[in-house]
Amino acid sequence: MEPFLFVDFSRCIACQACWAACRREHGGVSRLHLLCFQEAAVPLACRQCRKAPCAGFCPEGALVQEEGRGVKFLEERCTHCGLCAAACPFGVLEIVPGPVPDLSRCDLCRRRWEEGLMPVCVLTCPTRALSLDAGGAVGRRRRAQPAAFPVS
C-alpha cells in the first residue's frame, strides 16, 4: 500500500481550505498550491513520483524513494542547495527564501502520519476533492507520468 494524494479537481470549489490547512500545519508556508481558472481550480502538491527527478538530481541523497511512503526527505542530509526545486517537473517543490533557504514540499503530513492521523488537506476538504489513494489505479497512473509523458 502506497499512499498518494489523489486530487479530483472536478470536485474542487476553489475554497482554499486545503491551502490554509497546509499553511497552518507547516509553519506559514503552504506546500500545496491551488491554481484557479475560469470555472475550475486545481490543487497541486508533490506527486511522490516513482522515478522522481528531484531525488535523482539531489547531490546529497536527501530525497529518497521510501517503499510505502513515497519520496522521503532526509533533512539531516540536506544542504539547502535548491537543485531539487529546479528538477521538480510540476513546480511543487520550492525553495522558501530566507537566510537559510528552506525546502517546501508535501510530505503527506509525515508528522501526523506517525501519530496515525490523516493529512490536514484531506481532512479539511469539504467536497472530498482530495483523498488518500493508497495503491489505487489512479495513483499508479499519475505517479508514472513524469517519466512516461512529456509535459507540454
Binding site: 491554481l35 497541486l44 522522481a52 527527478p53 517537473p89 510540476f90 517519466a147 512529456p150 509535459v151
Partner: peptide, 26 residues
Amino acid sequence: TVGLSAGEADWPSCCPACRRDLESRR
C-alpha cells in the same frame, strides 16, 4: 536519473510557477 531524454522533457526551461500552470492546464 529518471530515464528522460533531453527532448522528452520540456519543463526544465519553465519556472516553477509556469510548471504548475502548465501541469494544471494539462
